[in-house]
Design a protein around this nucleic acid. Structure first.
Length: 422
RNA sequence: GUGAGUGUAGCUCAACACGGUCAGAGCACUGGGUUGUGGCCCCAGGGGUUGGCGGUUCAAAUCCGCUCACUCACCCCA
């Protein structure tokens, strides 16, 4: 096999056969989110690097080593977006959308992270992202999780579970952080090097470590859930009670932390056991101070993202529609018939039918084979004999019967027959 | 960034462990069997510098090195 040109590592083509499935997902998402009052937004793939550094966090892995960052002609640092939240907030602030009443948004599109490709993980990957601003009430937190689950149900993604936690806020988290650091320092002998490194910078992340010794060492660790301030505690309790009211199954995972710095209070993940190591299908949470930090109004925010590629690996409720794409296949013999057929094709298309023909002269047998292969409803056979009499032989492929039509009224007849049958 | 596995026609694979007949098969594709009619069947045909580069050898798809790509895992996440 000769291979010289190929897609850049981690970048996947979506071929026509798969596009149908993508559109299925996208259409279901648009339809469902609309019912919950969310409106679609589209933002550029490129943003100032600073936007992500300030929102996601300067010291996170994403910003430190996973972003596609370049310098433009004037030396400004720009990056391909690694996630959508920051861009949406930026657009919200830039266009002062808080003055319009719009506060619930969703975005479908590609994100970029420079990681080693793996099952369900690509360098260009696609997310369904949902964000809501200006709503403090825990009712929204629960509704968002309900909506995410509804979406997955609707497209046939079963066997996922919703894990919920609270990450506290600027009032209670710093105190807990100190307590946790003390605990970790006291047990430093049992921790892996990565976790030791995390103690000063991001001690919460140790809960996520997969090294067995670390898990053991963390087994007795203090949990944030026991150090929450009154407001965070009641927020969390309300979220849970709303989830129960909506019959959303969930489990509290007090050890769950999220990879981005900006989350406060509610955090959740949707996980599966069917994707190997890439078990996260989606995740999100609340980020009440972020809008203000980025120079906008002091509005609370909450959102989530779903990974489309991972969803597709879990989908069962999708059957590709094997309907006839081609209504009419023109089988043409001889130069004058081909010329006439060329014109007829455009006329039929103008009337709304899908029409296919061979552009190169081929045998009738070969053209019929093509008509069969593309699943044409009828084939229209025109040769010199037919042309002389201004007629055409119309063959109904599935039925195997053939009739003669006058060329003058064939178009109208075919439209009636084919549209009537649909 | 680290580790392991895999790379043979458009697709799925065979031949590789002990180098040596022209690198094969099925499906797909093209044409024919029907001087102008599909699906089934039959016949024929096209298509591979065996991922790339280099080495060992009289001889490499087969052994060795490097490289690229893919896959899985670590890390991190969607």
């Amino acid at each position: 096999m000769r291979q010289s040109l190929q897609a850049v590592r981690g970048m996947m083509d979506i071929l026509p056969d798969e596009v149908e499935k993508w559109r299925f997902i996208e259409e279901r998402a648009r339809n469902l989110f609309r019912r919950f009052g969310y409106r679609e937004i589209r933002t550029p793939l490129l943003e100032a690097t600073e936007l992500f550094a300030r929102s996601i966090g300067e010291a996170t892995d994403i910003v430190e080593k996973e972003m596609y960052t370049f310098y433009d002609a004037k030396g400004r640092s720009i990056s391909l977006r690694p996630e959508a939240t920051a861009s949406i907030i930026r657009a919200f602030i830039q266009h002062q959308l808080h003055t319009t009443g719009d506060r619930k948004f969703f975005l479908l599109g590609p994100m970029f992270r420079h990681e080693r490709p793996q099952k369900g993980r690509y360098r260009q990957f696609h997310q369904i992202d949902v964000e809501a601003f200006g709503i403090q009430d825990p009712m929204l937190d629960a509704e968002l999780m309900f909506m995410a689950r509804s979406f997955l149900d609707e497209i046939g993604v079963k066997e996922v579970s919703l894990e919920v936690n609270t990450l506290g806020c600027s009032v209670c988290r710093p105190g807990f952080r100190t307590v946790l650091q003390d605990y970790l320092n006291a047990n430093v002998d049992h921790l892996c090097p990565d976790c030791v490194r995390r103690i000063p910078k991001n001690p919460l992340r140790c809960f996520d470590c997969k090294v067995p010794q670390c898990k053991e060492a963390l087994a007795e660790a203090p949990l944030l859930i026991n150090f929450l301030c009154q407001k965070c505690l009641s927020h969390f309790e309300s979220v849970k009670s709303y989830l129960e009211q909506l019959s959303v199954p969930y489990v509290v995972n007090p050890r769950m932390v999220r990879g981005l710095d900006y989350y406060v209070r509610t955090a959740f993940e949707i996980v599966t056991t069917h994707l190997g190591a890439q078990n996260a299908v989606g995740g999100g949470g609340r980020y009440d101070g972020l809008m203000k930090d980025l120079g906008g109004p002091d509005l609370p925010g909450i959102g989530f993202a779903l990974g489309i590629e991972r969803i597709m690996l879990l989908m069962s409720g999708y059957q590709p529609s094997r309907e006839n794409d081609v209504d009419v296949y023109l089988v043409l013999l001889g130069d004058s018939a081909r010329r006439k057929g060329f014109q007829i094709a455009q006329e039929l298309r103008k009337k709304g039918l899908s029409v296919e023909m061979d552009y190169d002269p081929k045998s009738v047998k070969s053209q019929m084979r093509s008509a069969d292969r593309v699943g044409a409803t009828v084939s229209v056979i025109i040769g010199d004999n037919e042309l002389e009499q201004s007629i055409a032989q119309v063959r109904f492929m599935k039925e195997g019967i053939q009739r003669i039509y006058e060329l003058s009224d064939m178009a109208a007849e075919l439209v009636d027959i084919i549209k009537g049958a649909k």
